[in-house]
């Protein structure tokens, strides 16, 4: 029981960045742009967020308000992720370049920037953030049972990201603008014919996507990666892309995918310390493989009509109307 709660707590922490970055992927692809650059946007956003924390700490601002720092770092990361994604929008939407190339370039550029400027300004390729600036928002070891998953040893980023996820998901499906945005990914010519600004919607979708990737990137380095911002984010961006496809481009599917994947991943991580798994005697690599294999099996068993936006990846050309 105690173990299960521990695993579920870890699952939530691991799934949160995955969740929000995958939703970022949905926003871009629903508007018709393949955002392969999620990984790069995460790295870039997280790095700028970490620089912000570093500067605050150096100038001794808000030292006694770590949670406020955390919140502002999340905002800064989201903003810089959004700004970085404008490079993708510029190439994919305005200049109608191949979106795969743009995304690949941004994925290469972000680590290059982090390494170059990390070395120039911090004399190393990474920034370490002290624990005080990214600690738990709430500690309630006394709470009964499963309430502790949400209200014990929880980070402020968890609550913020859950709120952002719910609000944006509802907005994408229920609001006027959200519906317009999705129409641009399905049939931009039709959307244009009823007066929707296709390019504007695609800019919006990609920018939100970048912001969410930056947000998830900072949440990842602050929680899962123990406060180290560096040129790699462990393939989380690509994993989020995979979870997005797994979730069939829908928020509910993403929640299921991210939680399932996170849960299996955490079981692998703690397998050696739980007697039940330790007694079986399989190496940790076996448990590491399970989440990926299960994703493949679930994809085959529950395959349905692909929810992939029909016009994704195709630059909008008015002439094809």
């Amino acid at each position: 029981m105690e173990n299960l709660i521990l695993i579920l707590q870890k699952t939530l922490i691991y799934a949160i960045p995955l969740l929000i970055v995958a939703l970022g992927g949905v926003f871009a692809e629903r508007s018709g742009v393949i955002n392969l650059a999620l990984e790069g946007e995460m790295i870039f956003g997280a790095f700028i967020g970490a620089i912000f924390v570093y500067l605050l700490q150096k100038n001794e601002i808000w030292l006694e308000k770590p949670q406020l720092t955390f919140i502002f770092a999340l905002i800064i990361s989201a903003t810089s992720g959004a700004l970085y994604s404008l490079l993708l929008s510029l190439s994919a939407i305005k200049l109608k370049a191949d979106q795969t190339i743009g995304g690949t370039a941004l994925n290469m550029l972000a680590p290059a920037i982090v390494n170059t400027f990390g070395l120039v300004f911090f004399l190393q390729e990474k920034i370490n953030m002290p624990y005080t600036f990214r600690g738990y928002a709430i500690i309630n070891t006394e709470l009964p049972g499963f309430l502790r998953i949400f209200f014990d040893k929880a980070y402020i980023s968890t609550y913020i990201i859950i709120a952002v996820f719910i609000i944006l998901s509802i907005w994408l499906y229920k609001s006027r603008v959200g519906t317009h945005l999705r129409s641009c990914g399905e049939h931009p010519q039709a959307a244009d014919s009823v007066g929707i600004n296709v390019k504007g919607m695609r800019y919006l979708g990609t920018t939100i996507s970048g912001a969410l990737a930056g947000l998830g990137g900072y949440a990842y380095i602050a929680t899962v990666a123990n406060g180290t911002a560096e040129a790699t984010i462990g393939g989380m961006g690509f994993l989020a892309l995979a979870i997005m496809i797994f979730g069939n481009w829908s928020p509910v599917g993403i929640v299921v995918g991210a939680l399932m994947f996170g849960f299996l991943k955490c079981i692998g991580a703690v397998s050696s310390s739980i007697d039940f798994f330790a007694n079986i005697g399989l190496p940790s690599y076996f448990y590491n493989i399970i989440p990926y294999v299960v994703v493949l099996i679930v994809l085959v068993l529950f395959r349905k009509k692909s929810g992939c936006p029909k016009a994704e990846g195709i630059p909008y050309d008015k002439g094809q109307r």
Partner: peptide
């Protein structure tokens, strides 16, 4: 690495 990624970006 910055240079090669910018070249890839422009090659788009």
């Amino acid at each position: 690495a910055v240079i090669s990624s910018v070249i890839i970006y422009f090659s788009g």
